[in-house]
Design a protein around this nucleic acid. Structure first.
Lengths: 128, 128
DNA sequence: GATACTGTATTAATATAAATAATACGGTTG
DNA sequence: CAACCGTATTATTTATATTAATACAGTATC
């Protein structure tokens, strides 16, 4: 079985499913563009309602991990697209934070310095 | 009466109280360091439970608007300290957003441009 | 130290929202 | 059209958030 549920876990089922699948994709256990089990088959395998799996898949799609096509199935997002998705989100957060800072009266310089401070951890941008 | 409740409003009472008091402090209606009504007197005035006011006050304290002293009362934070409090928070958010962006592989230039984009906005939130 | 205030913590009741299930709808494929 | 797919809608159940009741603890005044 692809994943297992923990009923001692206080978190909702859909959240457990979401997290476990996300983890498997991050670790490369599920290959990019490969098809995930259908909401129904997975629901049967875990003895729960299909709608709960549907919710987990919807959440994974919202977070950019998978993409779903009506009538076809749900698939693991390419790692390159996934990276783009997450970067877009991160960029948006920077923009919003700067916007809020302006609204509260911080100067341009102060904001840019705050951003630079955040960028300089661990030696900045070193790739391997 | 200092404030009024709107029972057509779907939001919880403590939230209404929190927001109205915060607004009054931002507008300067309540002077800095002045004492707020006690949780009990305000509860009587609004015909609700003291604990609900207590929760509103606790929230205002968490957000830096007021400070409370056991046995003495609750007081409006100096506007200068309040501004500093909020600006510090905003600055922190910018730093964290930039840090996350770096972690996800955005370049320095991209991040700074995202920040600049956020700083360019004219209006901000609208109130009614 | 008695009283009359103040904020705060704990617990219980209740109202609201979240999670899940039942069911129906609409697309794709062979 | 049959057998799969994802998705939307509604209802039911369960969990959480909100409010209330009550008790505790600090400060000031007399």
């Amino acid at each position: 079985m692809l994943i297992e549920l923990d009923y001692k876990d206080r978190r909702p089922i859909y959240e457990q499913v979401t997290e476990k699948l996300a983890s498997m994709m991050m670790l490369g256990v599920l290959e990019e563009n490969s098809q995930l089990p259908s909401v129904r088959s997975m629901a049967v395998a875990l003895s729960i309602n299909p709608n709960t799996i549907q919710r987990a898949y919807a959440e994974l799609e919202r977070q950019g991990y998978i993409y779903s096509v009506k009538g076809k199935g749900s698939f693991v997002t390419d790692t390159s697209k996934m990276r783009a998705f997450r970067q877009k989100e991160a960029r948006k957060k920077v923009t919003e934070a700067a916007s809020e800072a302006v609204r509260l009266g911080l100067s341009e310089q102060e904001i840019l310095e705050a951003a630079k401070e955040g960028m300089k951890q661990t030696g900045g941008k070193e790739y391997d």
